[in-house]
């Protein structure tokens, strides 16, 4: 029996710290984030080359795919999605690149649990979204005739 589970049971038995209503509301609304048939893109443990965020490329990945500069690489369905995040003034910016470039009819959607923003990627697959709340985020690539490819949700600390 894990100690944390024993402590959690004691906490529930005491009834002094019920789950906040907002946490339950977020759990219920997560249903709307399901993408049936979507292809999950898992993190890739290779160094991320510079240039995920911009052509001049100043960010470098680490061996586990999580960069000190906030760059992550995900891959599935023949696509590679590089994502870089930054937080400034309490708002999150998410930028990245889909490789190979997904074409002019593709859309990239950057999702947080409460806000999603859609962008048309540039000719070489770059995209950028600003003004999002920090926290959990996922990037989805929608291509006509293909199931959506979505990155695993990852957490960006404010």
């Amino acid at each position: 029996m894990r100690e944390e589970y024993l402590l959690a049971a004691l906490r529930m038995g005491a009834g002094t710290d019920p789950v906040p209503a907002g946490v339950s509301a977020d759990a219920r609304s997560a249903f709307g984030l399901l993408l049936p048939g979507g292809v999950p893109a898992g993190p890739v443990d290779v160094a991320v080359p510079p240039g995920a965020r911009s052509a001049d490329g100043t960010a470098h990945g680490t061996a586990d795919g999580t960069a000190d500069a906030g760059v992550r690489r995900f891959s599935a369905g023949g696509l590679v999605i590089d994502v870089e995040t930054s937080v400034s003034g309490g708002r999150m910016e998410v930028a990245g690149q889909v490789s190979p470039a997904p074409g002019p009819d593709a859309r990239v959607e950057v999702r947080t649990p409460h806000v999603g923003k859609v962008r048309v990627p540039s000719g070489d697959g770059h995209f950028a979204v600003a003004g999002l709340p920090p926290g959990w985020v996922s990037v989805v690539c929608h291509r006509p005739g293909h199931p959506p490819v979505f990155t695993r949700w990852f957490h960006v600390r404010p």
Binding site: V23, D26, A30, P113, R152, W153
Partner: peptide
């Protein structure tokens, strides 16, 4: 919330 999102994915 992260656990629910893991269920989503």
């Amino acid at each position: 919330q992260g656990a629910w999102l893991r269920l989503v994915e």
